[in-house]
């Protein structure tokens, strides 16, 4: 994907996008939301902390495109800022999960027995607790907040990435080029970095996008129960909570945040679907080791969301 886009000229690039309308739709929608969030860094229609009780529960109008909430804050501004928070929290959590989990998984595959046992038991241990309970524990110890939500979600991404990395690296580790690497005097760390990591990268990327969308959901869940982002900052989950208590009185308030939240998740899923399909077809096309990757990957992918979804 990356290389084929880079390798082509502009005409060929046009052709490439034309052949993959799914990717274009997903990319455009994701970009749109990312842009929305990024703009909120420098500009929102109104400051999100500006409370104006007199103007609360307004419907959509020229001055407030999406109306105002129970405190008279501008909904459009809140959605923009909340989208950013959700994205950042999820992305940081993926970074934590991949940053710690992938090296752990690679270490398990490269060093073998004792390390493998340790890593696998550690991930089993983390898997054994529902994420939300540990999130409650973390926030009880350190107080609620976006940072702690990132830590709690990131913690649960670690075993997911460790498992995916370990499983797929194992199938690569039996190949002859790894043995030649060992003959050339490469240590386990060098083998993992030079031979294993590049060959499992595509799977890690796919898993990363899955965890990203799950992270958005998880952040919303934590904020909804009051353990995530704290006012005056906002996130999509927090907005949902605020809006839901008013839903029966003022239905429109709910729709904005809810719709954006869903769309956010769905579009990134949409992109991910394309990447996954793309990976599958590349595997079918020939690279022999990808075949084992695929079977391993799909089983990991189907196991992971079940466990980390809250």
């Amino acid at each position: 994907m990356r290389w084929s886009i880079r390798a082509c000229g502009s005409a060929a690039r046009h052709e490439f996008f034309k052949r993959h309308p799914n990717l274009v739709i997903g990319l455009v929608a994701t970009m749109l939301f990312a842009l929305l969030g990024l703009i909120s860094l420098v500009w929102t229609p109104y400051p999100i902390a500006q409370i104006d009780i007199g103007r609360r529960f307004l419907g959509p109008m020229a001055a407030h495109w999406l109306g105002t909430d129970n405190l008279g804050r501008d909904m459009a501004s809140l959605v923009m800022s909340g989208t950013l928070t959700s994205f950042v929290v999820a992305a940081l959590a993926v970074a934590i999960g991949a940053g710690i989990g992938v090296p752990l998984g690679l270490a398990a595959a490269a060093w073998g027995r004792p390390v493998e046992w340790l890593v696998l038991r550690f991930s089993d241990f983390l898997f054994a607790f529902p994420a939300i309970i540990v999130a409650i524990l973390v926030t009880a110890l350190f107080g609620p907040g976006a940072i702690n939500a990132v830590l709690a979600i990131g913690l649960f991404n670690i075993p997911v990435f460790a498992r995916v990395a370990q499983g797929s690296a194992l199938s690569i580790a039996t190949l002859d080029f790894v043995a030649t690497g060992r003959l050339a005097g490469l240590g386990p760390a060098a083998i993992a970095y030079r031979h294993l990591l590049p060959n499992i990268m595509s799977l890690i990327i796919v898993q990363g996008t899955i965890q990203l969308s799950l992270g958005i959901l998880a952040e919303a869940g934590l904020s909804y129960v009051g353990l995530g982002t704290q006012p005056p900052a906002t996130s999509l989950g927090l907005m949902l909570r605020d809006a839901q208590s008013m839903f029966l009185i003022h239905p429109p308030a709910d729709a904005g945040a809810g719709a954006v939240h869903r769309a956010d998740r769905d579009w990134s899923q949409y992109c991910r679907g394309w990447i996954a399909r793309r990976h599958r077809s590349a595997a079918a096309a020939g690279e022999c080791q990808c075949r084992c990757l695929r079977s391993k990957g799909s089983s990991c992918a189907s196991a992971a969301p079940r466990r980390s979804a809250m």
Binding site: L175, D176, F177, T180, G181, R194, H195, P198, N199, E287, C288, Q289
Partner: peptide, 9 residues
């Protein structure tokens, strides 16, 4: 001969 070279190098 197919398994003995890392496809990414």
């Amino acid at each position: 001969p197919f398994g003995s070279f890392n496809p990414r190098l």
